[in-house]
């Protein structure tokens, strides 16, 4: 295929549009991703001397109990955070998907936590969760629970507390996606179901849920990636503690890389996070392709 002058001109014009953004994108995102796969096979410390060590970092990781704790905790966070946030955001969307006075205000209220500073929010929640004087435990004692949990000071309850705050913060965001999904379900379907004598629960089960199939799948995919990379919430709320009870993968990378200056080893752990998110994305790609056929 010969390149015509017009095609060449188009390519030139096209690139000229893309280049200002692409230059920054290539230098700051693409290049680091490629370099990651080199650094992970070296012992790179803060003085910037890289020595090729082959798979040593990965072997070390395999025997590193803290790494496995971080991975297990990340899975723990993910496995609770997803179903909780999914049901909370879908519930909110169903509640708010009608023309009632004040609904617009509620939608706004639900979304606001998502765009407020994590530093401020986690501190407020730590105060609310405060074991001795915090309002949450005061309330629990008031309703008759003599020994309420220690929340972020207890190894068993710190993760649930963190998951709760994560859900509280994000549900308004996913609610918006569900609201948009609900708008695409034709009203006639609900009419027809009603004529056929379906009760509200059946209408939800056989009209709403199938109609939200694509939205739900999409939401689950972003939530999965979001949960695997969870970081600032944990760093600010518990710093991974008490002990290692809330240590997650991203934080472990940060810890090894920026606190202990073991760039090589931290990069090897990064590759695990990278691989998990890639797998999720590839899975999403194939499911979407199947649906679009």
């Amino acid at each position: 295929m010969a390149t015509t002058p017009l095609k060449r001109r188009n390519a030139l014009v096209g690139w000229s549009f893309i280049l200002p953004n692409f230059a920054g994108f290539a230098a700051l995102t693409l290049a680091p991703v490629i370099v990651l796969f080199y650094v992970a096979f070296t012992s790179w410390n803060v003085f910037g001397k890289a020595r090729w060590t082959g798979t040593a970092n990965f072997i070390r990781m395999w025997h590193d109990a803290s790494f496995w704790t971080a991975l297990t905790n990340t899975l723990y966070y993910t496995s609770l955070h997803i179903p909780l946030t999914l049901s909370a955001s879908l519930g909110l969307a169903l509640l708010l998907n009608r023309s009632l006075r004040g609904v617009a205000f509620f939608r706004t209220a639900a979304f606001f936590p998502y765009i407020t500073s994590m530093v401020a929010l986690t501190y407020v929640w730590n105060m609310l969760f405060s074991p001795d004087y915090g309002p949450i435990n005061s309330f629990l004692r008031f309703i008759g629970i003599a020994n309420p949990p220690g929340w972020t000071t207890s190894a068993d309850w710190s993760m649930p507390a963190v998951i709760f705050v994560g859900t509280w913060r994000e549900m308004g965001y996913y609610m918006l996606l569900f609201l948009a999904g609900l708008q695409t379900i034709p009203a006639q379907l609900y009419e027809a179901a009603r004529v056929d004598g379906a009760n509200p629960w059946q209408r939800f089960l056989f009209v709403t849920l199938p109609g939200l199939r694509h939205t739900t799948f999409f939401v689950v995919v972003i939530m999965t990636i979001g949960s695997f990379k969870v970081f600032d919430l944990i760093l600010l709320m518990t710093e991974g503690g008490p002990g290692q009870s809330t240590l997650v993968l991203s934080q472990y990378i940060y810890q090894k890389g920026f606190v202990e200056n073991q760039f090589g080893y931290a990069s090897a752990v990064s590759i695990v996070l990278f691989a998990i998110c890639c797998l999720v994305t590839i899975f999403q790609y194939f499911v979407n392709r199947r649906w679009n056929d």
Binding site: I18, F22, F25, A27, L28, T29, L30, A31, P32, V33, V35, L36, V39, W44, G48, I225, F228, K229, F231, L249, S250, I253, Y254, G257, F258, F263, A266, S267, S270, I271, L273, F274, C277, C278, V280, T281
Partner: peptide
């Protein structure tokens, strides 16, 4: 090219913050 853009949206920053920091420091 666009696919490369989209693909990186799904890649968490946490997974390449280390090499990025090395590059920026250099």
């Amino acid at each position: 090219l666009f696919l490369a853009y989209i693909a990186t949206i799904a890649v968490p920053w946490q997974s390449y913050m280390i090499p990025q920091f090395i590059l920026m420091s250099k």
